[in-house]
Write a protein that binds this DNA or RNA. Structure first.
Lengths: 197, 197, 197, 197
DNA sequence: AATGAATGAGGATTCATTCAT
DNA sequence: GATGAATGAATCCTCATTCAT
């Protein structure tokens, strides 16, 4: 029973199915048919809406990054003080919605995709840029000119923690990740105080 | 004209060709034929030696990790003092031999492989365990009971820096990576001093 | 806002679009969607009007042959004398309207279609029959009993010239084709005179 | 039981099967699987040897043209006198080997292919050039400066007769075609005599 | 009348893997 | 040891066609 305005619904279903399937397979070696079946439609329709498998992957990437960005924005909106802002970013980064098995797996695979698909590379660069920017702004009042450098190491640490998550078994422990990152942050910030001595 | 003792030569050629091809493709989507051709033999022979494509990949993984392990061991052998030992590990981690485009790309892809191939996961776990162990031992004199925690964050940071390398263009900058990791280390170590105050 | 009497307009648009698309592709490998899009409607509507892709092709064939037939009829109506009638047929055959790239390409492709679609074969046979008949009637006063044979070779020559046109680059040269065919005709007619000697 | 040196055998089998299948279908809408099956192998092997469907078609084209060229060359070798040489070309053109249903159908389809595949166009142009050259050389002693023009119309006539053959039912009648072409030739030649009067 | 939605069927192409030599 | 030969199984993608609205 075909209706009008199905496109956004179908697309969203496909994007979510894509993330699930990539998470299950642990790789991009998922067929369009698998994805489409999980999304409850034919593979032909998936192609109709996204043009190609790559198009589906890119849409899924955008979806994940959009979710992440929204969560960070939301967390920043209610954060209080510089410390609070950095904490907010970290907490959002490791929130259950983002730091879940499927999403982490998809994220790692998209990183691989970025090596051969320019648009994927661009998306990932945008993510990195925004994260660096958010962190730098939040750190500025506390770290001054050292803010960019700390943002960089903090960003790398976040990515490293994501990466290591895929090797672990059991459910992700976002709190532990946040704690580890915060400890790193505190160490870096304290160092400044020392310098000031 | 088949010669005796060709096996190790052939195998090494295949392993190196595998890393090159993965680096070129930026993914594991390389065919056995490509690998074999680059190694100067037929794909049938590649199967003869490794049994399967997965076998080839795993051998390449072992190769990369063996190289890394050897480099770390060598660096540790000539390192002086606790600080020197940690530095040695970091420098080895980001040495030109390990921190080169191909190897970084292969390493990321093996991380992906680990999600679907248990043996790959095991290998990666061994690498992580050894790195943690090496760092912990080196840090112990300086960090005491905090050594394992610092080793953990340092390990995650190293992995994160590798990960971020694949997005960059231009040749890898191992020195910058070492510097960043050292700064993190110093911050963590200083923090201890503060705690002691 | 559907209007009344759209059917003939839609159909004609589709038929013309079909010829254009076949001309562009140089083959029958054109999709119904392409045709419909060029005709400014959905492919579903194209099916609604013609029932099937084959139906669209056949309608396009009929269109081309109708145009050709009308042109010949028009030319014959104003022709003077037996010679004039044959000339008229040739000129109509190679007129800009018929002997244009698209139409020639479509015509060749319909010839192919005739090998697998009986109705297409029938249409082509009708065209051949009419051409032979027209030529024979016109030739009778000049060639007597040899009229049918000359009509046959003249018909084959016309088809051959069409066929060869598709290989050429640049715009079709109808005048040259007419001249060549006329030369052939004159030779055949003169031969009769010789026979009479 | 794989042997060495299968390539030429397989290729020839595929080429012949291709012509048969195109003849059967009356179009290029034959699948690689059909062709491969008729040639007694898997479609994968067909791709292995020819790279693509287009490659198979082009090889089949070359095959047909090579056969034709060989036959013409053979006929010319034993022909006596200018008249004999032209006759030889015509007889070869409509010999049972070339003027058979399958080959004629394939030839027509290759003509279509030439519109979208440059290499096919090139091959057909080569065929046309050789035919024109052969005819011109043979006609020169009889027709002098009119040789090229007569060669052109004779060539178009030959192609037209091939084209019309595909519409006929029943076995091809090469003799009739030769007779028709010869009559055309005689008329053209006689015309010269008239001119001389 | 007109179309967006939807799909089944099919087709080119790829590739890991096997095997006889 | 080494390889050319060979294929089954898959996968992406296309497209004519149908249908509910």
């Amino acid at each position: 029973m075909p209706k009008l305005g199905m496109e956004p619904i179908r697309k969203e279903a496909l994007v979510k199915a894509t993330i699930v399937e990539i998470g299950r397979a642990g790789s991009l070696d998922v067929t369009v048919s698998q994805i489409a079946k999980r999304a409850g439609m034919s593979s032909a329709l998936a192609h109709h809406y996204f043009g190609s498998k790559e198009g589906i992957f890119l849409a899924a990437m955008r979806h994940i990054m959009t979710l992440y960005g929204a969560e960070v924005r939301g967390a920043l909106a209610t954060a209080v003080g510089p410390q609070g802002r950095v904490r907010a970013i970290l907490i959002a980064s490791f929130s259950p919605g983002n730091f879940r098995r499927e999403a982490v797996s998809a994220w790692l695979n998209f990183w691989v995709l970025a090596q051969s698909v320019p648009e994927a590379k661009r998306l990932l660069a945008v993510y990195q840029g925004r994260l660096a920017s958010n962190l730098t702004v939040a750190l500025r009042p506390m770290a001054g000119s050292r803010a960019p450098a700390i943002a960089q190491s903090l960003g790398a640490l976040i990515d490293g923690l994501y990466l290591r998550e895929v090797l672990k078994s059991g459910p992700p422990d976002g709190d532990a990740a946040v704690a580890l990152a915060l400890r790193h942050l505190e160490a870096e910030l304290q160092r400044r105080a020392d310098d000031a001595c």
